[in-house]
């Protein structure tokens, strides 16, 4: 279980998240929707530990909680191929290349030898998703994973995400509310900035 208690985060004295409390179960696909710039990505960064809260706390059930994440800006290694980028989180070993390749195929990337500057925005996003799925984690965070994808590819990618995250918690920031309702178990909609309120799921 993931519990967020009275969480606040501000940048340059501007509140992005204010007194947010949120309880999430151990498993399930939770979609977070809301207008652009309302602080959804910041919330994922706080859960991932990339940002530190200004106030409040984030608690995980269990002593160790591993997190995997797909970033909005992909964050791929420029000098490594799509396959090598996915294999990076598997320890960069030859033995794990076939697993990395399988994950890429599942998200529709067949030309696994391309470098990031040879990939479209949508392909980069899918490589980033495959990389996130490569790691065994308790919580998977996806920041706008379907933003640059057509509906068919988004459906295929969502299916791959669901297949590899059974029994664990997935939190995905999704811009398209209708798509979020269709694929997620629960949808949280933040309609104001800063993000605030109390949510128990």
């Amino acid at each position: 279980m993931l519990r967020i208690n009275d969480l606040s985060k501000s940048f340059n004295n501007k509140d992005v998240i204010k007194n947010l409390s949120l309880s999430l179960p151990d498993s399930g696909f939770i979609a977070i929707c809301g207008p652009s710039g309302c602080g959804k990505s910041t919330l994922l960064h706080l859960i991932a530990g990339i940002e530190k809260p200004s106030e409040g706390e984030i608690c995980f059930s269990g002593e160790k909680c591993s997190i995997s994440m797909s970033f909005q800006d992909s964050r791929l290694l420029a000098e490594r191929t799509a396959l090598q980028n996915v294999n990076f989180v598997l320890g960069d070993k030859k033995a794990t290349l076939s697993r990395a390749e399988k994950l890429l195929f599942e998200v529709g990337i067949t030309d696994v030898g391309l470098y990031p500057d040879e990939l479209s925005g949508g392909m980069k996003a899918r490589v980033s998703i495959a990389r996130a799925l490569a790691k065994d984690a308790d919580i998977y965070l996806f920041d706008e994973p379907f933003a640059n994808l057509d509906m068919e590819t988004a459906e295929m990618t969502a299916a791959a995400i669901k297949k590899h995250t059974e029994g664990v918690l997935v939190i995905a920031v999704i811009h398209d509310k209708e798509f979020a309702v269709r694929i997620a178990d629960r949808v949280i909609y933040f309609d104001e900035t800063p993000i605030t309120g109390e949510y128990i799921i």
């Binding site: 530990g49 990339i50 800006d73 964050r75 290694l77 990076f88 989180v89 320890g91 960069d92 790691k135």
Partner: peptide, 19 residues
Amino acid sequence: ELLQMANTFGISWVLKVKR
């Protein structure tokens, strides 16, 4: 951003240096 990504995935320091 790349260092944050590597930390999120718990990448070893050797691999961080190398890649």
